[in-house]
Amino acid sequence: MKRSSILLKGLLRENPVFVLVLGTCPTLATSTSVISALAMGIAATAVLICSNIAISALRNLIPDKVRIPCYIVVIAGFVTIVQLLMEAYLPSLYEMLGVYLALIVVNCIILGRAEAYANSHTVGESALDGLGMGLGFLLALLCMATIREVFGNGSWAGISIPFLKDHTVPILTQSPGGFLVFGVMIALVIAITNGKAPVKKSFSCEGCPSAAACGKLSPAACEMNGKEAAGHD
């Protein structure tokens, strides 16, 4: 795969939030304002790039049996470093993100990319994948935060918007509004990609990180399973 494709796939075609539907918890929690979305996006991107590089570099050393504990230790280490740096040099953002900063450790995007990509690709490719997925996460957060803050609070990044300030839709800043915007954005991405994105091989049945646990399903078996599942629906 071309390096530019690795970088760009995370932005739309395999966007971690709107296509892979990973990292929903921090997305809904921190997209109430553009500033907190930006901070969360940058923090997660930094952790994603660093953990992808480290895991890719260590992939031949880490035994298969302890790979998940090793990934968690590496990811938790980078998250704690980001936490300490933010607490020291960006205390207001640190307080704004609260517990969600520490929860990056269990963010499915990071562990998912470690298991599905960094585990089997070179350091350079893994770094690009981390950057692309991180930027995709950041972009998704910024899109959602812009909609929620502009129409829910009448401001953008804390800057008041004159007309909208008096005509807000407060529910958009609440949890139901978050789910509503999330659903609309997913529908929009499916419409833009003509619904083809979700059947990409890299995250289909055979591309699933747990495929080995399911008896290493072949592409044909996956296809059959998919048809059976569709038949049951």
Binding site: L61, P63, V73, G77
Partner: peptide, 13 residues
């Protein structure tokens, strides 16, 4: 391997 990774992470922290 797990012990070594933990030690390196501890030093970085």
């Amino acid at each position: 391997v797990l012990t070594c990774i933990c030690l390196v992470v501890a030093v970085l922290l």
